[in-house]
């Protein structure tokens, strides 16, 4: 049956209206899923680097601590502090801004089917200079330990 025939078969109208309604609901759901605010409190926490097989993540810290008091601590695999700086959450852009220029706008929240994920840009080239746009990102997994209870290296 061709499309033309299908359009003139009985029951087409109500199916069409049902489909339009379904698309409306799905569209609303989709847009709503990415528009809600992500407050700073939801971002603060302790994170560890998720395992990545193909991405070159060796240069990234094994862990991140985003403290409520505005301190960002980058941790090595052995728990040593690699860097400590100040951070604040740019809610509109879902970006972590830092006092350390090389980490500014490098950490963000991106969404997925499973919810929000902390993503860190792997390349350390300052954004503004990266004409090749090597913007691959590694994901970090939130740890159950609150940063204030985590070992403060």
């Amino acid at each position: 049956m061709g499309l033309h025939q299908a359009l003139h078969t009985p029951g087409f109208r109500w199916r069409f209206c049902a489909l339009a309604a379904l698309l409306g609901v799905l569209g609303y759901t989709a847009v709503n899923a990415i528009q809600g605010p992500v407050p700073q409190d939801d971002v603060a926490g302790t994170y560890r680097l998720a395992p990545h097989r193909l991405l070159p993540v060796d240069s990234l810290p094994a862990g991140l601590q985003l403290h409520d008091d505005g301190t960002l601590i980058l941790l090595s695999g052995t728990g040593d502090t690699l860097k400590r700086c100040q951070w604040h959450w740019e809610e509109a852009e879902r970006l972590v801004r830092t006092s350390a220029p090389d980490w500014d706008r490098r950490i963000r929240i991106r969404s997925s089917l499973g919810g929000h994920r902390l993503a860190v840009r792997i390349a350390s080239t300052p954004l503004i200079l990266d004409d090749n746009e090597r913007f691959e990102e590694a994901e970090y997994i939130r740890s159950a330990i609150a940063p204030e209870n985590a070992r403060h290296p």
């Binding site: 489909l19 379904l22 698309l23 799905l26 569209g27 759901t29 989709a30 847009v31 899923a33 990415i34 852009e93 879902r94 970006l95 500014d104 706008r105 963000r108 929240i109 991106r110 969404s111 997925s112 089917l113 840009r121 300052p126 954004l127 503004i128 990266d130 746009e133 913007f135 691959e136 990102e137």
Partner: peptide, 30 residues
């Protein structure tokens, strides 16, 4: 058609916050 729309909706959060939009915007803001 409904299944296609559903697949797009399920994938949408990842699509809408993909690097080509979000990181590029971060670069543009910088």
């Amino acid at each position: 058609i409904a299944l296609i729309a559903l697949a797009c909706t399920v994938h949408y959060p990842s699509y809408a916050t993909r690097r080509d939009l979000a990181v590029v915007r971060a670069r543009n803001l910088a």
